[in-house]
């Protein structure tokens, strides 16, 4: 199971690196979100995979009973997803504005439009 997950994470990372290096900002964004999802899966796996119950505390109890999943990686991933969502939204707006200003999202063409001083 761990091996399959690791291979999946590696595949996602490889695809995202390919997209991010393509020189097109739109692909960069897609690659970036794919990469952050790959990292989220990696964190999830770092918290150990198990077939356990969700980490909820039953009514009237003070601690979860029985075998429960590790709640911490889930909290970390949730935080990372929220932050990643915000950053992704901002980047998308930025690229949209960039497109409005330069008429292209190809990074090389932007480079030509705005030569170094």
């Amino acid at each position: 199971m761990e091996l399959i997950m690791a291979a999946l994470i590696g595949l996602m990372a490889a695809v995202s690196v390919y997209l991010m290096l393509a020189g097109n900002m739109l692909r960069f964004i897609v690659g970036l979100s794919l990469l952050s999802n790959a990292v989220n899966l990696a964190i999830f796996e770092a918290g150990r995979l198990s077939f356990a119950a969700p980490p909820f505390i039953a009514e009237g109890e003070k601690a979860p009973t029985g075998d429960v999943a590790n709640a911490l990686p889930q909290a970390l991933i949730l935080t990372a997803i929220v932050i990643g969502f915000g950053l992704l939204a901002f980047t998308l707006v930025l690229v949209y504005r960039l497109y409005g200003a330069f008429g292209t999202v190809e990074i090389d063409e932007i480079e030509n439009a705005e030569p170094r001083g």
């Binding site: 915000g86 901002f90 707006v93 504005r97």
Partner: peptide
Amino acid sequence: AVTALFLALEDD
């Protein structure tokens, strides 16, 4: 935040 972003994009 999400509404502000969406409205800005939609206006644009």
